[in-house]
């Protein structure tokens, strides 16, 4: 099925969710992504990806408690679903399998 493929950015977002643990909500994910990649992550992009991940069943979400800091609006917390964990592991294995088959790869001279 086309929808189950994990795009590069989707993979990053999913990993970030996993890394943040219980604090994974949209703004925090954006900040964390920015910290990792050094590029700015726009809320619009991340929000769309989160929505798509949830649609694909790779992530789950629930609303948290209300807090005064957000104008009384609740946060939506995300966590990686079972299917999401499988997809992440598969992606990692795929890469490693290919890495293993590259003979004598080194970064000499290229940095």
């Amino acid at each position: 099925m086309k929808g189950t493929n994990l795009g590069e950015f989707e993979e990053l977002v999913l990993l970030t969710i996993a890394a943040l643990g219980t604090e994974a909500y949209s703004v925090a994910i954006c900040d964390e992504l920015e910290r990792y990649t050094g590029r700015s992550a726009k809320l619009g992009v991340v929000h769309a990806v989160l929505n798509r991940l949830e649609e694909k069943g790779l992530a789950k979400s629930h609303l948290g408690d209300a807090s005064a800091t957000r104008g009384g609006k609740r946060k939506r917390f995300y966590e990686v679903s079972h299917a999401g964990k499988v997809a992440l592991t598969r992606a990692k294995e795929l890469r490693e399998a290919i890495w293993r088959n590259i003979p004598g790869f080194n970064l000499e001279g290229s940095i």
Binding site: Y25, S26, L43, H47, R70, G71, K73, R74, K75
Partner: peptide, 8 residues
């Protein structure tokens, strides 16, 4: 709700 909160 959460989007409005995010934007805020």
């Amino acid at each position: 709700e959460d989007l409005e909160g995010d934007l805020y």
